[in-house]
Design a protein around this nucleic acid. Structure first.
Lengths: 337, 337
DNA sequence: TTATGGATTGCACGCAAGTGCAACTCGATG
DNA sequence: CATCGAGTTGCACTTGCGTGCAATCCATAA
């Protein structure tokens, strides 16, 4: 029970000695108001601390200005960097970001989308998990736009933004071979998302073509600890790998730390490592990791541009899929060939 | 121009053969509806994909369920960890998080709060910057609750959550002395926020009491790069410090990397280092940093508890200030005394 | 059979905004 | 002076929902 309530347009109208319509028009760009009325309304609004109620405005216009971000693992460097860029660009586009954390059990993506519907979000951007097809349909039917980032789904309707994971895997294989690596390995998590698997398949395919086999090991999440475990498993093998592509930078950091501090290996002399994401820590001199940069800014730009343009449903389905290139950031964890 | 609109209660009512009131009551806990009516409404709602419009509900109830999070530097480990915990706990409390990024120019905190007012947020949680007193007043007058985290402001009204920064500084000074350090230093950023300055003052005061002087250097932001620069400045001094307290973990990481890789120093043998925040990287074996843990969970719990309880204005002002303890996490960057 | 009471239901109004339409003002023109 | 037209203004209705009030229903008691 708040002691006082928000200031309404009615109160402003009374203070300014005009009708409520005049207040509404003053805050509606393009509406017809005389300069004098406008000034008096603005004065009164300023004095009372009036701010248009976007809940009510959204009700009328059937457009809330809210964009829902559906995310898990927010505390992860890559995720938080993407989040940062998305929120900034959304704000610049005049939208507001609603945040739904899906760190809990599965199916929570569906519950997140229900939240988005309840608050009549103009759009939802999904960074984690995959919604059930029925919910996706409901969103689209309701006129809510959908963006899937690195989700690689085949449902028609949502905008899908993906990277060239497969090709990236290939480029790193080449780099390892140039560096003179003899035994390649791919360190992956058990998550099995399309992005991770794409890197794995591309790496294996290219290595095979170059005449090398690849040891693949999958364990746990995509974090630092999993990287350590993977290092322990891989570096105790009879035939120790000397070129390891880690599916994410966090895995790579864990892998490198274990390789150095537990196995006493020197990087890149005895072991070449590459990662993916280009998180901030990859550039730290303790890691100096050669990796692929997620085009975070481009991803956000594409998503927001599409939302702002109100991308129509009558576009061809091809227009609903964007493929961006991950730039190879060359640092010191791979020997120069 | 969406092709179709969201389903309204009216449509559900028609399909279920009842009045719109019945639909409304079905979704209002505690309202009077017969089991039969309820069932028919729920069936119709399910079939049509109906979800209560929270914008309209918020309009009626004068309680939107929205909590606005005002943040900068989201991509930073500590910030994103706090954010993660806040969103999870807010969701558990039935609230929705609105996200405003203030990475831009100053004064944007004020603009962020205006957003919060426009969307009639029930509360705002401020993690960065300080709002102007006039806006704070407007929020409170409007019945919006305010939480300041590590902001240390003296305005009455908002809930203020802070740590024992000063005492922590003191504890680390003692640890350095026990480790046999002779020349102490404090590596700070130029940000000059109360938290950072509190750690600095506490450290200096305790060291002085123990008979040691402290070299203080301030530079740049609270990030990794600033830590490197600070190391360069401090470690080239005639009297090289052998015990350095860094105001944040990121500073410490940069400091350690420069100390090892540029100056060839061994930690903790030749140099003891401590940080603050206990970011994930502090536990990585490359750093193994002794540091203070931000009680992220406790902070979020306090904030959400206060919001959920609807903390009344007639509470004594003391109840508006919470002081939490930062736990010392002992790792390997300080010699055992 | 009628009265009583509790549970259920619908009507109508209100929340805070946007907007079509008609009425109004005012200056310029005929 | 009457007419025209452009520019303002206010009325009234709309959005989707919650809720007080009065009417209704039905089962039980008198």
């Amino acid at each position: 029970m708040p002691s006082k309530l928000f200031v309404s347009a009615q109160e402003v109208a009374e203070r300014a000695g005009v009708s409520r319509s005049a207040v509404s028009r003053t805050f509606t760009p393009g509406a017809s108001v005389s300069a004098d009325t406008r000034r008096r309304v603005l004065e009164a609004a300023e004095a009372l601390g009036y701010h248009v109620n976007h809940l009510a405005r959204g009700l009328m216009r059937n457009e809330s200005g809210i964009v829902c971000l559906i995310v898990s693992d927010v505390a992860t460097p890559y995720r938080s960097a993407l989040l940062r860029e998305l929120t900034i660009q959304l704000q610049n586009a005049g939208k507001v970001a609603m945040f739904v954390n899906t760190d809990r059990s599965d199916g929570s993506v569906d519950r997140a989308l229900q939240q988005a519907i309840r608050y009549r979000a103009d759009a939802s951007i999904i960074l984690s998990g995959l919604p059930d097809k029925s919910i996706t349909q409901l969103c689209l039917r309701s006129g809510q736009r959908l963006v899937l980032i690195n989700r690689d789904d085949d449902q028609p309707g949502p905008l899908k933004i993906n990277l060239d994971d497969y090709e990236s895997g290939g480029r790193i294989a080449t780099a390892f071979v140039r560096a003179g690596c003899k035994t390649l390995a791919f360190a992956n998590s058990e998550a099995g998302t399309p992005s991770l698997m794409g890197r794995e398949r591309g790496f294996i395919a290219a290595a095979t073509k170059l005449g090398l086999e690849v040891v693949v090991e999958r364990y746990g999440s995509t974090g630092y600890e999993a990287g350590r475990v993977l290092a322990q498993r891989m570096l105790t093998r009879a035939e120790r790998p000397d070129g390891v592509f880690c599916a994410t930078d966090l895995l790579a950091c864990g892998f490198m730390d274990a390789a150095r501090h537990q196995f006493g290996l020197s990087i890149p002399d005895q072991l070449c490592v590459a990662g993916f994401d280009d998180i901030e820590q990859a550039s730290w001199s303790s890691f100096n990791l050669t990796t692929f940069a997620q085009p975070v800014m481009a991803i956000a730009t594409q998503a927001v541009k599409w939302l702002a343009s109100g991308g129509h449903e009558d576009e061809p389905e091809e227009a609903h899929s964007v493929r961006l290139k991950a730039e190879l950031i060359w640092r010191g964890s791979i020997r120069k060939g």
